[in-house]
Design a protein around this nucleic acid. Structure first.
Ligand SMILES: [Zn+2]
Ligand SMILES: [Zn+2]
Ligand SMILES: [Zn+2]
Ligand SMILES: [Zn+2]
Lengths: 146, 146
DNA sequence: CCTAATGTCTCTAGCAACTATAGCTTCAAG
DNA sequence: CTTGAAGCTATAGTTGCTAGAGACATTAGG
């Protein structure tokens, strides 16, 4: 059995994050030692590694919750799991498309500015006027931080 | 003079967001009508459009705060503004690189799954074991000090 | 065995950048 | 003059953690 610190080290997850996952019910309540400290089994470690890996691949905690409960029922069809993965792929692709447009616009701004006074700065000028942009990079939703 | 609703419509920003920007000091306190409703000038509209456009390009509110205060001093050098834009470009490029790796991994997962039971699902299997991944897509923990 | 240094406990609050709700007041159209 | 939309303030919720305070547990050294 591992203490929370050892578990975090082993799975590459910070200790408060583990407690947070337990708090929101993503990890089951841990066993406790005589002194009330959390103890984890190898199984718990695998579950945490799964979560961590899915987070690294950009899945939301909500999606991970679903994936975990699916993985607990091995004889069911995997269609739901595949659908979650496909949705995540679509999400990543749409973010990629948007970021690609952003990159082009930012490059244009940076390249076009000759340096000098703010009054003549192409960066400031373009930020004030989207019609100076080459692409329509606007999007109702602004990208999630990731 | 525009009401907050008209301003929001004109600039493509939701009304609560405008009030939020005022609250955090990104927009100055608006003039008020006799009945205490906010009124905006064309100048305020331009400022809001600037903010919105910069947000659309992924700049943080903190960066926008700096850009706005720079744009208020037209005879200063634009080096600082250019630096902010370059930093944003670098940020976008790094996110692009990460998302590209993620996309590849997700595609691999989705393609490799033949469908069937959860027990044989490649999606679940890969999520549980990063060593099945082709790339090292994991989150960088340390900021590059360049 | 004692002590000091970690590690862990709970609880609360904070981060970005909004968004939503509740319970009012004001305004504009009919 | 009435009604319904739009505005006001204030508070809380969102996502996924992260940081702190103050108390208790465990472990390594002397
Ligand atoms: Zn410039
Ligand atoms: Zn633009
Ligand atoms: Zn599958
Ligand atoms: Zn992986």
């Amino acid at each position: 059995m591992l203490t929370i610190g050892k578990l975090g080290e082993a799975a590459g997850v910070k200790v408060p994050t583990i407690r947070y996952y337990e708090q929101i019910g993503l990890l089951p309540e841990a066993e406790r030692s005589a002194g009330n400290q959390r103890l984890y089994s190898r199984k718990a470690m695998e579950r945490l590694a799964f979560i961590r890996h899915a987070r690294d691949l950009g899945f939301t905690l909500e999606a991970i919750r679903d994936l975990l409960s699916l993985s607990d029922r091995p004889d069911q069809s995997c269609a739901a799991a595949d659908a979650i993965a496909k949705a995540q792929l679509a999400e990543v692709e749409s973010r990629l498309a948007r970021l690609t447009a952003l990159k082009a616009e930012l490059e244009r701004m940076v390249v076009q500015c000759a340096g000098g006074k703010i009054a003549d700065c192409r960066v400031i000028e373009v930020l004030g006027d989207h019609s100076l942009c080459a692409t329509d990079h606007r999007h109702p939703e602004i990208e999630a931080t990731q």
